[in-house]
Design a protein around this nucleic acid. Structure first.
Lengths: 196, 196
DNA sequence: GAGGGATGTTAATGCTCACTAACAACCGTG
DNA sequence: CACGGTTGTTAGTGAGCATTAACATCCCTC
C-alpha cells in the first residue's frame, strides 16, 4: 500500500468539502479550492473520489445516515414516547450545534446530487422523519400523520436555524432554548387543526 | 420611448429569476436560462439590468424591503402586543406560503450579493427582526433581547420551512398549523433559560 | 536494493458562461 | 416619411472550471 492505509486524507477532504460547500455552495467551490484546503493541489482529489459530485454525495449520504441511525437508536433506547421525543430533540439539537456546516449543506445542496444519491438521501431522510412521526403519533393520537409530518418538518426548520444565528448565545443556552421551543411547537394544544 | 413605458419585461425577468434561483441556485442559472424563461434570448437581459448580480440584488432587496415594511405596518396598526404578534405571525406565514421561491432565495443567496447589496439586505432584515423583538419584549419582560433575537430567528426557520414540505397540506391548514406552532414556540414557558 | 502500488504534480482539453460588439427591427414623434 | 431611442438578435471573447494525461515520488514488500 501507499503511505498510510488510513483514509486520513480522504476524510480531511470530506471535512473541508462540507465546510466550503456550506460557506460558498457546491458550485461556488472549485476542485482547486478543495485541494488547497487540505494542502494539496486540485487534481489530487481524483485519487480519492471519482469526481466532485461523488464527493458531495458522500457528504450528504453520511449526514443523512448519521441522523437516521441516531434517531432510530434514541427511540429504541427510550423508556416511553415522552422520553423518546426528548431524546430526539436533544440529539438533533446537538447535531445542529456541533455541525452547522453539515446542517447547512444538508438542505441546500440536495439538487446537486446524482439521481441515485438523491434517492438514497431522500430515503434516509424519510426514515428519520418517520421516526419522529411515530413518537408523536403516540403522544398525540388522533392527529393525522400528514399533519404530524408537516409539524416535524417545521420543527426541523426551527432547530436547523442555528447556522443563521451563529454565536449570539452560548451553546448550552442555545440548546435549552431550542429544546423548549421545539417541544412547545410540537405539543402546542392545537398542533392539529381539526380535520375538516 | 419604445413599445411600452411599463417595466413589464423587467418585472417578468425578476419573477423568473426568483423562481429559477430558488429552484437551481444563483450559480445554477445562466443568463440564457433567464432570457429563455421570459421568451427572449440571454443578452436581452442587459437592456434591463447591468448584470446578473444586480438582478439578484434587486430580488433580495425587494423581498427584505417588503417583509420589513409589512412588519412595521402590522405592528403600528396593532391594538396591543398580543395582536401585534398575531399579525406578524400571520403576515410572515402568508408571505412564506404565497412566495416560497422568494423565501428560499432569501436565505440561500445572501452570499452571492455585492457587498453594498448585502449590507442593504442585512439592514432591512435587522429592522424586521427588531420589530418582532420589540413586540416580544413587551410580552415577555425580563427576557434578554439576545435570547429574544435567537428565538425570533428560530421561529423564522420554522415558518420558512414550508418550501421543504410543499403541498403536503392544504394551504389554510398549513397556515393554522404554523401559526399555532410559531406562537407556542415563542411563548414557551421557558423561552428564556434563566440568565446564568 | 529493485519493483510496484498509492499518491501527487503540472500541463493540457474542452465546456460553460457572463459579458460585449455589431447590427436589425420596431414605433412614436417631428 | 425620416430620426432616434428602445429593445432585441447573433456572433464573438476571455475567464473559470471539471476532468484527464503524462510524468514524478515515496515507501512498503520481497
Amino acid at each position: 500500500m501507499g503511505p498510510r492505509p488510513t483514509g486520513e486524507r480522504r476524510t480531511a477532504i470530506l471535512g473541508a468539502a462540507a465546510e466550503l460547500f456550506a460557506e460558498r455552495g457546491y458550485r461556488g467551490v472549485s476542485i482547486d479550492d478543495l485541494g488547497r484546503a487540505v494542502g494539496t493541489t486540485g487534481p489530487a482529489l481524483y485519487r480519492h473520489f471519482p469526481g466532485k459530485r461523488a464527493l458531495l454525495g458522500e457528504v450528504l449520504v453520511d449526514i443523512s445516515d448519521r441522523l437516521a441511525r441516531q434517531g432510530a437508536e434514541l427511540v429504541a433506547d427510550a423508556a416511553d414516547a415522552d422520553g423518546a421525543l426528548e431524546s430526539l430533540l436533544r440529539g438533533h439539537i446537538a447535531f445542529a450545534l456541533d455541525e452547522p456546516a453539515l446542517i447547512t449543506v444538508h438542505d441546500r445542496e440536495l439538487g446537486n446530487l446524482t439521481d441515485a444519491d438523491r434517492r438514497r438521501v431522500r430515503r434516509l431522510q424519510r426514515g428519520y422523519v418517520e421516526e419522529w412521526v411515530g413518537v408523536l403519533a403516540e403522544l398525540r393520537p388522533g392527529v393525522s400523520p400528514t399533519v404530524l409530518r408537516a409539524a416535524v418538518h417545521a420543527v426541523f426548520g426551527l432547530l436547523n436555524s442555528t447556522p443563521h444565528s451563529r454565536g449570539d448565545l452560548p451553546r448550552p443556552h442555545m440548546a435549552e432554548l431550542l429544546l423548549s421551543m421545539g417541544r412547545a411547537a410540537l405539543t402546542a394544544p392545537d398542533t392539529a387543526p381539526s380535520p375538516v
